[in-house]
Design a protein around this nucleic acid. Structure first.
Lengths: 343, 343
DNA sequence: CTGTTAGCGCTTTCAG
DNA sequence: CTGAAAGCGCTAACAG
């Protein structure tokens, strides 16, 4: 046949084909979708029917190329075991409400992977980014700054020059509070187990908070560094940590773990060895995972409202995107010390 | 000034600006990036330097609009507690190796949310999709079929008409195997706790497998439906389930949970009530989460290689995308029964 | 090895 | 309320 344009049979419907089928111009279809009020009700109805019949789904790539950006990008760490899942849920829900799309890409905690992930995200020209920690790679920071991409870092609020906006708890305060609480209850020889702190300012702040509490309350004794240890973020890591610490110093009477996962592993190990919790050894965690409350014994832990943090991050980011002035660059989230049976 | 085009000061660098700065045509920049071999080494080096200096990141939207598609989309359920995290990791790693991008959107298990999530994904015109279960919504199935989007469903392999490709274990077989194993060890009154099976064929198949094993080995007694219960997928759900079942029938000697999360909760409850595991009650789980092995007592469970499933899904999908012929539509993944202390 | 032309599918802008 | 023209930033296809 002599047609110039290929027939649309069997091919994916686009806006032009919808327009043709509804007897309007493509622009009217576009409006029917994004500004329904600007289209006459019956025209609109006709268009919508066609869209429904042929199963048209607008091409977001083209749409965002010319129009407004709708992606909020975020880098997620390997998802295993992380309370970050709740945070993502909060971001996801908040995005849905705003007709934004949450684009997740996976990165691990190495600076390279992080930079790679950020480049990938930037390639999609997101309206904004939410990052789970302060960006380590200086290149990535510059990239984001120079492009003026709105960014929320969900992270530690102390001692850092943020790229843009920040939402977070004071990790120092949480660790200080928990450690102080343990001391107030009567524990004096308190171990501290962290997942690897290298390059992670949040974990570093927790350790500093722990130390500060020991010092301030006068229970910091010589050789207390030996009460500190770093372990991988697995329950096995927690099991091993408690064995190692108790082996180093049998007089340790409590251990504060910088993650519930570690604490849970430690509790299992105590069962195994017949150590009574909290009489022989008190255990405290960080994160308040779902399991913490139903564990036996139930786990005393630091509760950070992850879901809310995710939501707040999106809310704050969309304000920035909307160009709102006088946005406070840094939002602090409160936390709770949840006291249960393990202490 | 009299320039027609706005100066590029302060604006995001694009390919044209890179071309201008390197003294070549935009097309050459494009090639330097995607087919370096077709560009003279020194030209290439010059271009790359400029790219690096100005921090150019190509626009994926434009690129994929005209060129090849690089997105593999997937719908993730609320991530909490799910072994799906490992699966995502497998997919993510496999995507990286192929220069594909994994686009995650969040959906829950309702048919509506699922359909919405799929539409969102389709809007980005992905090269293919990986879905975590059989798609429930008939509309969504038709949408995918009619567009001929390559799809891998990671799901139950029995009794379903797949949209396209399938990767999965036989949930029937896993449940049948675990239940049989419990019977062989000597348990005769075996409870079964599932998370809500409504609309989830995988969970339904597990239940059917459990029942079949009871029947085949002749331990299915009258009123055995009372050994079955559905609970939300939380540790608390597991705690409650074990109490309820034991209350209904104190002679139950083992409980098979369709998720480790439930089983973990149950074990805590047994500690609390002073029931010895496995002497008073045996516990079996499903999933082999990291915690299962370090739990006290360690948990007998079904191990499904989630990470591998994720990888396989991407591998298979990219073959389909590449147009490979004679692709087997359905890949079966093996599983293990991991016996530990809890049985 | 490099450049030119055309156009992906949509929306902005401006004109009815 | 509706439409026509122009172009987002890139790459396939075809010349040189």
């Amino acid at each position: 046949m002599g047609t110039k344009r290929k027939r649309n049979r069997d091919s994916v419907p686009d806006m032009r084909s919808i327009a043709r089928l509804s007897g309007v111009a493509p622009m009217t279809v576009s409006r029917a979708l994004s500004n329904p009020d600007l289209v006459a009700p019956d025209t609109r109805a006709r268009i919508m029917k066609v869209i429904d019949d042929v199963g048209f789904v607008p091409d977001q790539r083209a749409s965002s190329l010319r129009g407004t950006r709708t992606i909020i990008g975020t880098v997620v760490p390997p998802l295993i075991n992380s309370g970050i899942a709740e945070q993502v849920q909060g971001m996801s829900d908040a995005c849905l409400e705003r007709d934004m799309q949450l684009l997740l890409v996976q990165g691990d905690f190495s600076a390279e992977a992080e930079e790679q992930a950020i480049r990938t995200l930037v390639g999609w020209r997101p309206a904004g980014l939410i990052l789970q920690a302060f960006v380590q790679s200086e290149e990535a920071r510059m990239l984001l700054r120079s492009r003026k991409v709105p960014v929320v870092e969900i992270s530690e609020i102390r001692g850092h020059e943020a790229i843009d906006l920040t939402v977070g708890v004071s990790n120092f305060d949480t660790a200080y509070a928990m450690t102080s609480r343990l001391i107030d209850i009567g524990y004096k020889r308190i171990g501290f187990v962290s997942t690897p702190t290298h390059g992670n300012d949040r974990l570093q702040q927790r350790r500093i908070g722990y130390r500060a509490a020991l010092t301030d309350r006068g229970v910091h004794s010589q050789g207390a560094e030996r009460w500190e240890i770093e372990m991988p973020i697995t329950t096995r890591g927690g099991s091993e940590a408690v064995s190692i610490l108790r082996n180093r110093d049998p007089s340790i009477d409590a251990v504060f773990f910088s993650s519930d996962t570690l604490a849970i592993g430690a509790i299992q190990e105590c069962h195994r060895r017949g150590w009574k919790i909290p009489d022989d050894l008190a255990i405290a965690g960080y994160g308040d995972t779902e399991l913490a409350a139903s564990l036996y014994p139930s786990l005393t832990t630091v509760r950070v409202p992850r879901y809310q943090m995710g939501r707040k991050a999106v809310e704050h980011l969309t304000r920035r995107i909307a160009g709102e002035r006088n946005l406070s660059p840094c939002i602090t989230i409160n936390f709770d010390i949840v006291e249960r049976e393990s202490t």
